[in-house]
Design a protein around this nucleic acid. Structure first.
Lengths: 203, 203
DNA sequence: TTCAAAAGTAAACAAACGTTTACTTACTTT
DNA sequence: AAAGTAAGTAAACGTTTGTTTACTTTTGAA
């Protein structure tokens, strides 16, 4: 039998991300996608059940999968807190700033009920994304370095600023400014570390 | 001549927000909106030029307008840093947790190119939203209490965690949990304050 | 009380939507 | 080399889209 053309599958995914990033999720249609990828609409349905299936797989597999891998590169849960945080922040920054389409869909994941629901189901069903970070934080809670807060609260405190900074990086790009640099990222990371770290020997 | 029925205008806006919040921006159509509001599609076009105009006005006027007012209530730029921050965080939390549709569209503002562009144009054309916060931060930079960073960077460090915490509040609601309370918000606010505050007399 | 005029409605427009049908192509297996 | 089968295409399906046309209703002012 004739084998699947993996190039076409990759084209579907990358062009779908491109359209979402440039025109918005609300402006992605199957026919527009097929035309942009130079294939028949039917071909998309060989690889995906329907539009929702395409979007969910794009989000969970293509985007969150590679995102997680990039963020956790050269990171391990046994690192000391400051080094670990800086590694995670720089990995996040360097991956996302070169992958605007991925960043765009991640943002939609916080907006769209469909993607948000898919993310939570995935997270519950088969162990959460970014579980090494979970372990990392637990270690430092146990060591008394950071306060014992729910994991979601840790995440909001420690990682929401870096995601906002990436959004600002792209906004500034549009206006041909360059304010958000690796140096700024590291400064911000240190501020966040200072905030969360217990000051056992002060006062 | 016959006057506009303001109730219908309000119905259009609130029902549009409802649909966006429940089904997503990508599932809002003019016909669905008209049917849900018990009016003719044509009526929407009396009040708005087209769908984009409706979305932009919904976002900028209805949502960001009321959001700004709520966040700045009983706040003024002359407050001391800690009190001001806590006021802003609690105002944000208490407004958004009771206004999921507003929160949803604010999230879409970070995803959708249309809304994101509209926000930036509005911000440039006629003075930024939340300018009292701008003044507030400038004051405390001048006093040497917090480091002199670009305003966007301040915003990412000081306010992105509270928005993430609101998102988590809604996620937990769906699972009938109640982790994000005013008390948690204040704890987190203090952590953020501690991080950004210059320690002039230590070390 | 009449009446211009905007508000509002019901129905329809072409275009685009997600998806499928009927068919052809390309490749593996025998 | 022939057969068999999934991949892939072109064209079309019925529906829904954003928007408009043609008409009716409601109102404040004359």
């Amino acid at each position: 039998m004739r084998p699947k053309n993996l190039e076409k599958e990759e084209a579907i995914r990358s062009i779908a991300l491109q359209i979402i990033s440039d025109e918005g999720l609300e402006n992605l249609s199957m026919q527009k996608l097929a035309k942009a990828a130079n294939i028949s609409p039917r071909t998309i349905y060989i690889k995906y059940e329907n539009k929702e299936d395409l979007l969910v797989k794009l989000f969970i597999e293509e985007v969150l999968g590679t995102y997680e891998k990039a963020v956790l590169e050269n990171f391990n849960p046994e690192m000391n807190f400051s080094d670990g945080m800086k590694k995670l922040w720089l990995n996040t920054f360097n991956f996302l700033k070169n992958n605007k389409p991925a960043f765009s869909l991640i943002q939609y994941g916080k907006s769209s009920p469909l993607l948000n629901k898919a993310f939570q189901e995935k997270n519950i069903q088969q162990g959460s994304f970014f579980s090494p970070i979970h372990t990392f934080l637990k270690n430092h809670v146990k060591a008394g370095l950071i306060p014992d807060l729910p994991h979601d609260v840790h995440r909001a405190l420690l990682f929401s600023p870096i995601q906002d900074l990436v959004a600002e990086y792209f906004d500034h790009l549009n206006r041909e400014q360059q304010i958000i640099t690796e140096e700024v990222i590291l400064t911000c990371c240190e501020i966040v570390i200072k905030g969360i770290t217990n000051q056992k020997h002060n006062g």
